[in-house]
């Protein structure tokens, strides 16, 4: 078993409260499935603002610092046998319905 990180980018935020709840329910169902399969380790949402440093004394920009669809909105840490299995797990992510993307990255093991 290896660890993988899912990075969530973009996606659509509904304006209707009812559709917000529907979207959230889909995420909850997806996460619940990962948890039931023992794949889910941790996850956090990220705020939409921040700062970018290009060098220690160069421009520090207040976010949003990228195109909306480029902003990482949150991450998951998950468990999988292979990168293919991890990518397969990400296929059910509700973010795709709103045109967002999931980046799947293997976590490097420090002591191989």
């Amino acid at each position: 078993m290896s660890n993988f990180m899912f990075l969530f980018r973009g996606g659509e935020t509904p304006t209707s409260p009812e559709r917000m709840q529907a979207q959230m329910q889909k995420w909850m169902n997806w996460i619940q499935k990962l948890r039931n399969d023992g794949k889910y380790i941790a996850g956090d949402p990220l705020q939409g603002t921040g700062k970018v440093l290009r060098s220690p004394n160069k421009v520090i920009t207040d976010g949003p610092f990228a195109e909306g669809k480029e902003i990482v909105g949150g991450y998951f840490l998950v468990r999988a046998e292979t990168i293919d299995e991890a990518a397969d797990m990400a296929k059910d992510c509700p973010i795709f319905e709103g045109g967002g993307s999931v980046e799947v990255r293997p976590v490097q093991v420090i002591n191989p």
């Binding site: 959230m24 995420w27 909850m28 956090d44 949150g74 998951f76 509700p94």
Partner: peptide, 11 residues
Amino acid sequence: LVQALEAWKIH
């Protein structure tokens, strides 16, 4: 509402 949505759907 948006803040709740964004936080809860992941957390």
